[in-house]
Design a protein around this nucleic acid. Structure first.
Length: 463
RNA sequence: GGCCUCGUGGCGGAGUGGUGACGCAGAGGACUGCAAAUCCUUGCACCCGAGUUCGAUUCUCGGCGAGGCCUCCA
């Protein structure tokens, strides 16, 4: 493979060349949503960022040679709470299913609007309980986990190099002293693999009784099932580094006896509002749905492609301060880009765009180049396919507006009338026609024929 | 307290040991009957201090400032 990809690896804190374990099957896992409520725009960032990465990998290694797994977390105490709150009359399992199905559907609609293509597999935690039990059994058998007071806990002291990802040695953690030190834990940093459920909590039978999994174990189980014990890339938000990913690593490595879980760990930065992390628990967040379908942000709705472009205008590891001004700039940019259908695979994207993306997903440079290509394509239609292929790689290609032939003919007729009015210097009538079309969302553009100096009018559907 | 990021013009943002990207907005102009679109021109910056260097925005150290993780969290 000639294209060279480099990614910043949280594990080493360095940008290094990417070498897939198997170029015929490049494997990536990304932590997906916990489905209890609308996803906020901060949740959209990893979905978009790793969607771009997925597209890039598919371009480099081939569409059928990349496996992208993104999970749905549908077992969680927040889901239970939401189910009890919203559907108090129903049996718990039914209430939970209502909450998770509704939220999952909404999530899929939201990120589809943001231009994200579907991952190869999207496993659910509840479909992988036996796999989790198997891993926990293995951890116990290998002396990395123990049972105490109805919980199965991971024994962090049993792993000599625990803390590599977050660079947080165990002894130093105690300085924080904010970890709830339960007496039944051998060490304060030990975390739950399995906990018993009461009657009004969802539960599954296990060797340790009817219970439910801890937070981290699902990703270990699902990544193993779909990607193998060791895979190429694991992604997620910065806040997952500790404890979630650290503990995933501990579980997977100790269960499998491997030196790494994933070779490359990539983490996206936060979306901020007024300089602070957007967070559900802090209450300062705006949902994707609100941006798309309501006027709560900036007094208007925002198309998904604008939200996506605004997101890609900042490097994925940097924080983004979400603002109306930023969205407006994205809108101005995209408004100048030509619409096109995605070309077939025979049209190569611009090498500069590929190179930019290959340099630790430098979407900023890629978008800048795209903007140049757009201007070139506007001047010379022959360059349109390359622009379109490049834009498609980023997932930000403006779609051709659907206009049927009869309408187009009517527009052309009106344009013909306007040109006649102009020749007759009947400006009032000419402007009336222009305004009439404008009101219907048709923007006229007057240019001059270079050879004859004659006025030439073209039109497009306003975006 | 421990551990991580980051600090570039009005805004967004690359990048580099040595001619101060680029985009958006702004200003001026061309074109136009007037617009829109397009094109041309243009002002504005590298947190502070010390060090290394012939030379630092770029390297080192120290400040200051912002944010994050250590508790559910993308």
């Amino acid at each position: 493979m000639s294209s060279s990809l480099k990614f910043y690896n949280t594990l080493t804190r360095e940008k290094t060349a990417f070498q897939p374990i198997d170029a015929d099957n490049v494997r990536m896992y990304v932590c997906g949503p916990t489905v209890y409520d609308y996803a906020h725009i901060g949740n959209a960032r990893p979905a978009i960022v790793f969607d771009v990465l997925f597209r890039l990998l598919r371009h480099v290694y081939g569409d059928t040679h990349v496996t992208y797994a993104r999970n749905i977390t549908d077992v969680d105490d927040k889901i239970n709470a939401r189910a009890l709150r919203d559907h108090p009359g129903l049996p718990l399992n039914d209430a939970i299913r209502l909450v998770t199905e509704k939220t999952e559907t909404q999530y899929h609609q939201d990120i589809a609007a943001l231009g994200c293509i579907e991952p190869t597999v999207e496993p659910r935690a509840t479909d992988n309980i036996p796999q989790m039990v198997t891993i926990i059994e293995r951890l116990i058998a290998r002396g990395h986990a123990y049972v105490a007071e109805g919980e199965v806990l991971f024994d962090t002291k049993s792993m000599t190099d625990y803390g590599q990802l977050s660079k947080r040695p165990l002894d130093e953690q105690q300085a924080g002293a904010r970890i709830a030190v339960d007496v039944h834990k051998k060490n304060p940093g030990d975390f739950v693999l399995w906990k018993l459920s009461s009657h009004n909590e969802p539960g599954w039978d296990s060797p340790w009784g009817r219970g439910r999994p801890g937070w981290h174990i699902e990703c270990s189980a699902m990544s193993e099932r779909y990607l193998g014990e060791v895979f190429d890339i694991h992604g997620g938000g910065l806040d997952l580094i500790f404890p979630h990913h650290e503990n995933e690593i501990a579980q997977s490595r100790c269960a499998h006896g491997t030196h790494v879980m994933a070779n490359v760990w990539m983490h996206n930065g936060f979306v901020q509002i007024e300089g602070r992390k957007m967070s559900k628990s802090d209450g300062n967040f705006i949902t994707i749905h609100e941006l798309l379908a309501t006027e709560t942000f900036g007094g208007r709705q925002w198309p998904g492609e604008i939200l996506r472009l605004a997101m890609l205008m900042t490097h994925y590891r940097e924080p983004i301060d979400f603002s109306v001004k930023r969205l407006e700039e994205a809108e101005r940019l995209i408004a100048k880009w030509p619409a096109a259908d995605a070309p077939d695979a025979s049209v190569a994207p611009c090498p500069i765009v590929i190179e930019a993306l290959g340099d630790d997903l430098n979407t900023v440079a890629a978008v800048q180049r795209l903007h140049q290509l757009a201007q070139e394509a506007n001047a010379d239609r022959a360059l349109l396919p390359m622009f379109a292929a490049s834009a498609a790689l980023l997932g930000v290609l403006p779609k051709m507006a659907e206009v049927d032939e009869a309408v187009a003919a009517a527009i052309d007729a009106l344009i013909g009338m306007r040109l006649e009015m102009l020749k007759a210097k009947n400006f009032a009538e000419a402007d009336r026609i222009r305004n009439e079309l404008s009101d219907k969302g048709i923007q006229l553009k007057d240019t001059k024929d270079a050879a004859t100096g004659e006025r030439v009018t073209t039109w497009e559907v306003k975006r």
